[in-house]
Write a protein that binds this DNA or RNA. Sequence first.
DNA 1: GAGAGGATTTGACCCACGTCAATGCCGGCT
DNA 2: AGCCGGCATTGACGTGGGTCAAATCCTCTC
Lengths: 260, 260
Amino acid sequence: MSASGSGRPVDGERRMPADGERRKPADATIADIHPCSACDVRQLSVCNVLDAPELKRLAEIVSTVTLPAHRTVLHEGDPADHLYNVTGGCVKLYKLLADGRRQITGFLFAGDFLGLALEDRYAYSAEAVGEVTLCRFPRRRLERLLDDLPKLEKRLLGNASNELAAAQDQMILLGRKTAREKIASFLINLAARAERRGQSADPLALPMSRTDIADYLGLTTETVSRTFTQLKTRRVITLLPGGMVALTDRLAIEELASGG
Amino acid sequence: MSASGSGRPVDGERRMPADGERRKPADATIADIHPCSACDVRQLSVCNVLDAPELKRLAEIVSTVTLPAHRTVLHEGDPADHLYNVTGGCVKLYKLLADGRRQITGFLFAGDFLGLALEDRYAYSAEAVGEVTLCRFPRRRLERLLDDLPKLEKRLLGNASNELAAAQDQMILLGRKTAREKIASFLINLAARAERRGQSADPLALPMSRTDIADYLGLTTETVSRTFTQLKTRRVITLLPGGMVALTDRLAIEELASGG
DNA sequence: GAGAGGATTTGACCCACGTCAATGCCGGCT
DNA sequence: AGCCGGCATTGACGTGGGTCAAATCCTCTC
């Protein structure tokens, strides 16, 4: 099962305003005081509702983590001790059946929040797709902090609300769409999210393997591959080297995605 | 598409501690002051975190609604003006594709919360399966109230968290389970929820039509029907009149549900 | 309690996608 | 540069569940 772009850093991420920018003199001082202020992805994440003093309190309990490709971030059933915010790279969430069948329930990118767990156990596993950077919050301390930061709590509720809507979109995809519609929806969805992060949506990066895509869409690798070549033949996409796709006829893809 | 037990009240509900109990003299006075105190399903719902004075404030903005079978509760894309709590009966949530294909994303029963909408539009439609009773909250006023009732807000976040976990279970069901496993999971899931509500889980009520079940599980009516008869033939379930099923061999069903 | 109309069940057949099996390709390592 | 290993692609074929169609069976209604 699974395995993707073996160790190579996620292509999509090379385009991020990365370390170079973070170390501009102007920001360096602020970053020393509370690193969250200088966060590249703050505007994308749940942290965007906090002002400077609030950010500082958050910064006090956060630690940043870098994980290599394929490293498990958290495991279904384990005590939910930490929550995470993805700051770079791509993380996949998945659940397994007893016999190894896998369903990927989501891909997370910079700005996405991870770990909202019912009770005190994670409901799913999470694994780094390429190299990934994360902000890690101890759950207890974050929960206590939430009592003082109702804005953040509201934001988390809004976030959960968003995720629920996305989950329902995924249900109609899994339950009612054809392979072609699934692939088209997947591309449109990734493109929209890349745009929101300020990354390129047209030569679109697909950091995950065909197997990952298949397990996300409820298909097999073979069907994913065949569908890609079919779309390529119809000249609606172009497969580029390095896990990139050009959305040659984006309108056609959008039509396919919504069941045209 | 769809249609179920046309007008007949949901069987499962007949067993609820209904009017007789609600009208005991002791409760009647309290109910007059603030009806939420006498609510049959309070212990099941998000309201269970509130104490008497808080309940009273909630009661001030709530109104109760009764809808006949097949009545639309809310419609995808409409302004999200109200939130609801189901107090009796069954509500189905669904999304449609342009050509009419439908995915039911959930069935709600007494105690379940409805309407958490992203932005200010509903992300799905909701329709009464049998006759349904609901508590209705104006969204604006509830949101304002939430500022004063952090406990309730926390509870809603926990609730959303639960729903996300359920959504992920549904994704693995839709994406990776066979028809038989889907039906088995469905029965086990409904049985567990009936138990939690204090209703009978073994002769289990199925208030929804075969078409609804199909649209929930990503199947067709025919396949749902065939799978039920198959399970009947294998003596793991018994189909009873009035939309009831006996889980003759619950262990076998549980094994099937988890991919045995 | 007889009739009507929809829901459910059953049957026959088909097809989109899965399975099994090569083959091709690309990136990394020596 | 050339080999190696894992991913992706392609091909041939099988099948679970969809489609179309025809009985039954309920359950309201009168």
